[in-house]
C-alpha cells in the first residue's frame, strides 16, 4: 500500500500545536474533519475511540513515532493523516522517548487487511533513518508530501 492510498494530504500538519497526548489526537482528528475526510459529527466519537485504543497500550512504537488509530464505522475506507511536532510529545512510548511523528489512522471495522498494509508501509519507511530524520525536520506540508511521494516511488520500483 502506498502512502497516497491512505494519507489525506490536506489534513497533514507540519507543525502540531498540541503539547500532550489527548490534544495531539484531537488536533489530528480535527485536521481530518477540516479536510472533509471524516464527518464533523463523528469527530468526538473518533477521538474517543482512538483514546480508548491508547488505553490498551501506547501506539508509540519507538524512534519518536506513534500510530494512534481506531476502527470507526464513519469511514468506508482507510484514511490517515500525518502530524509533526518539533518539540515532541510524551506519548508513553515503548522506548520512553517523546513522539515527533504521528501517523493517525481511521479504518472501517471490517478491513483488518488494509490496516496491516498501512502499518507495513509506515514501518518499512521508518526503518530508513534518513526518511525518519527528514520527516521530523519537515517544515511544511509540501516537504512532507515530497518525502511521501519519494517513498511511494521507491516502493513501486522495488
Amino acid at each position: 500500500m502506498r502512502f497516497s492510498d491512505f494519507v489525506c494530504v490536506s489534513a497533514i500538519r507540519a507543525e502540531l500545536k498540541a503539547g500532550d497526548k489527548p490534544s495531539a489526537i484531537q488536533e489530528l482528528v480535527a485536521s481530518l474533519v477540516a479536510a472533509e475526510a471524516v464527518p464533523a459529527a463523528q469527530q468526538e466519537g473518533i477521538v474517543k475511540a482512538i483514546l480508548k485504543r491508547e488505553e490498551l497500550g501506547s501506539t508509540g512504537i519507538g524512534r519518536g513515532v506513534a500510530v494512534p488509530h481506531a476502527k470507526h464505522a464513519s469511514v468506508d475506507r482507510l484514511i490517515g493523516t500525518i502530524g509533526v511536532s518539533s518539540n515532541g510529545i510524551d506519548f508513553n512510548s515503548l522506548d520512553g522517548e517523546n513522539v515527533h511523528l504521528f501517523f493517525l489512522l481511521v479504518s472501517p471495522p471490517d478491513r483488518p487487511r488494509d490496516h496491516l498494509l498501512a502499518l507495513e508501509s509506515i514501518s518499512r519507511q521508518l526503518r530508513d533513518d534518513a526518511f525518519c530524520r527528514c520527516l521530523k525536520n519537515a517544515k511544511s506540508v509540501q516537504d512532507i508530501q515530497t518525502l511521501l511521494n519519494e517513498a511511494d516511488q521507491t516502493q513501486a520500483g522495488a
Binding site: 512504537i61 483488518p112 496491516l116 498494509l117 507495513e120 514501518s123
Partner: peptide, 12 residues
C-alpha cells in the same frame, strides 16, 4: 523489533 515485525503485514 516492532518496526520489523510490522513490515511482515501478516494477516490471519
Amino acid at each position: 523489533s516492532v518496526l520489523s515485525l510490522l513490515t511482515l503485514a501478516a494477516g490471519q
